[in-house]
Simulated scan of single mutants.
Amino acid sequence: MAIEFTKYHGLGNDFILIDNRSSSEPVITPEQAVKLCDRHFGIGADGVIFALPGENGTDYTMRIFNSDGSEPEMCGNGIRCLGAFLADLEGDAKKSDQYRIHTLGGVMTPQLMPDGQVKVDMGIPRLLAGEIPTTINPANEKVINQPLEVAGKTWDVTCVNMGNPHCITFVEDVATIPLEVIGPQFEHHPVFPQRINTEFIQVVRPDYVKMRVWERGAGITLACGTGACASLVAGVLTQRCDRKATVELPGGPLLIEWSQIDQRLYMTGPAERVFTGKID
């Protein structure tokens, strides 16, 4: 059986998008997703995203398999790519420039902007230790500037859940961080029972930061939308950042705003179609 797909990327964070609207379950398995994501023997991607029928009154449902076959709750760059993909699927007949999408991390609303960017209402960040989840703070309070021993060094970390778990630490120079060594040690640290995405942040100005990321289940990626949102929240909580800032990732910039009015996170960035094809 041949399955049509379209490849998109958001700042270099790339995904295989599959029209799965005729079924409530993904049409390929996690094991097959691993093979498709292989950059030498497959298509090559950080994950496979499925557009499924909506649940609980939403327009669509998003499921995603990472390149290692695991399933995350949500993906910020992926939801922008999914919004653009849905607009392409609906074509000229589409009645709306925004979609309410059910994810394992909650309902997300990507909106296609006139300039081609995609703005997403990412919801309200969750900050209690049990919501991350992490055992760093057994009192189930917020985890802000807490010490964590990783790779023989003590790091001050702040934890945020943006529908998926994030651990943020601020450094002098993100370019000097050996991500391939330290990233896996953060991801699999025993204080994170569901593993963790880890962001290393260099504050250039309160409205401009640089970020590198180790993603749970995908490793080093060029961008992470939920990570950029979590990092801004951590910057505000530690009084390093404004509530609206540009987050510069290896793949390019995202504009993140933590609204003081409704306490929701808004992420704006690109989603670009790369090519289409068929999987045998």
Rank of each mutant, 00 (worst) to 15 (best):
A2E: 15
T6C: 11
Y8F: 09
L11R: 06
N13E: 01
D19S: 03
E25N: 14
E25C: 09
I28E: 11
T29D: 08
E31P: 01
K35Q: 15
K35P: 11
L36V: 10
C37S: 01
R39V: 03
F50M: 05
G57T: 02
T58L: 03
T61N: 09
S67V: 05
C75Y: 01
C75H: 02
G78N: 00
C81V: 06
C81I: 07
L82H: 05
A84I: 02
L86E: 07
K94D: 14
S96N: 12
D97H: 15
Y99H: 10
P110G: 05
V118D: 10
M122H: 02
R126V: 04
A129R: 12
T135R: 11
P138S: 15
N140E: 08
N140Y: 02
Q146G: 04
P147V: 01
E149C: 14
W155D: 07
V157Q: 03
C159R: 08
C159H: 10
N161G: 05
M162Y: 12
I168D: 08
T169Q: 08
A175C: 11
A175V: 13
A175L: 15
E180P: 08
V181P: 09
V181C: 14
G183L: 10
P193W: 03
I196Q: 03
V203S: 06
V204W: 06
V204N: 12
M211N: 01
W214N: 00
W214K: 00
T221D: 00
T226S: 14
C229P: 00
L237A: 06
L237W: 10
T238G: 06
Q239G: 10
V247I: 13
E248R: 09
L255C: 15
E257T: 14
Q260L: 13
I261H: 15
R264P: 08
T268L: 15
T276C: 13
G277H: 09
